[in-house]
Design a protein around this nucleic acid. Structure first.
Lengths: 225, 225
DNA sequence: ATTCATCAAGTCATCTGATGACTTATGAAT
DNA sequence: ATTCATAAGTCATCAGATGACTTGATGAAT
């Protein structure tokens, strides 16, 4: 049965305010109506208005200044975008992260520092020691290696995104798949580091793509069942 | 000078609660103390407690159930990832979006439908008509074209991210730069469509990269000033 | 004329008390 | 043992009040 719409006032107030912002009716830098006015506009109490505003402040859309008012800081709703990304399929998420892997490897080949290289080599070595801790530990070490490649790109935006996708993909895999994904072999990973160390962007991209292909193929196979 | 530390109670309450959660002292699934208890623990009023809790609910860390209590939903704050992306530099954001452009073009070359192709060609033609509406309108049409390429990749996660980056980059540019970025010529864009139409992934990637290079170079120049 | 202190109005920050809605456990009735 | 009504506990929401802060206006001192 369709569950009776059970939404709380704060959420609907938050949505209303968010709509005014992202639609541009309240422009960036503008001051929005004060709490008393919002109480009237939204037909909720001041406490509810404050909770709604506080949420949008925490998401970076609004900015309150005591004594002055509440101002629109940004129209880019990161939280909402993120929710929508989470609802996309596993293949889409994987491909998006692969896009980051590819370009990060290319940038890393051009920009890496000696320290970056040492970190990557150390993590690659640790990753090889299959001994400790079972599958979970292996996956964790594998991710640490890949993230070190992204870190070597020197691009903070890509690092944040990579973290996000890693978390989202892990969550989705646990929820949707019980089959195993192939574990790329040590050779494929070493090729990435070699290409980066040689400052060869094209080879770095090729190495990442080569290592991605079998995983993506297996993913397609599992999802098509 | 170092501005005098001016923190509000809600923020410090939010931090305290978040610390309990991420440290694991309040485990996932556990019920946290009720509002009255938190009022005592944090030495703030119920209203402040409610605002703090509401923020953590909006970030996915807590989950309130009326009549039952407030429970820990997750200990990882992935929802803040994109917020942090917003605070990275323009170059990083641009490169991250370029990573999407590149891979999207490659996927589009492999997966595009005839309808995708027609849309891209139409938007490309409209983009060419410099006539209407000045610089803003041109940028809007340019973005519409690029987004149609991402759409042709059939990857919804990449589409959402592309929207996010587009908005974030626009905001950042308005805030930090007044110089102009070079407008890639029509020829460069047509090359992308041609490569996709020819179902040639390598050429599609090359075409996007060729078109990105001058913009990125100008960006570096502007930012290094 | 400029600068500075003072003041008043507007706004958010916080607290307090009260009422309603919902969930859950308890215990009686069957 | 099951069902059902009841009560206690909890969050949701409202209303009123006070404090803190910002901003612009006013006027005195320079």
């Amino acid at each position: 049965m369709q569950p009776a719409t059970r939404t709380n006032l704060t959420d609907s107030a938050t949505s209303s305010l968010r709509a005014e912002i992202v639609s541009g009716r309240w422009g960036v830098g503008e001051r929005i109506p004060n709490e008393a006015a919002l109480t009237d506009l939204l037909s909720v109490s001041r406490g509810t208005v404050r909770e709604a505003v506080r949420v949008l402040v925490s998401q970076g859309l609004l900015d309150t200044r005591q004594g002055s008012g509440t101002y629109v800081r940004s129209t880019v709703d990161a939280s909402a975008a993120l929710d929508r990304v989470k609802r996309t399929g596993l293949r889409d998420q994987w491909e998006a992260r692969a896009a980051l892997d590819l370009e990060a490897a290319r940038l890393a080949a051009m920009r890496h520092t000696p320290a970056d290289l040492e970190t990557m080599r150390q993590l690659l070595a640790e990753r090889g020691t299959v001994a400790g801790g079972g599958s979970d530990a292996f996956i964790r070490r594998d991710l640490a290696f890949h993230k070190s490649v992204v870190a070597a790109s020197g691009n903070k935006a890509m690092m944040e995104l990579y973290d996000f996708f890693t978390a989202a993909i892990t969550e989705t895999i646990h929820a949707t798949i019980d089959g195993d994904l192939p574990e790329p072999d040590h050779q494929a990973h070493a090729a990435i580091v070699d290409a980066i160390a040689a400052s060869n962007p094209e080879r770095a991209v090729a190495a990442v793509r080569a290592f991605m292909a079998p995983v993506l193929a297996q993913l397609e196979r599992l999802l098509s069942q």
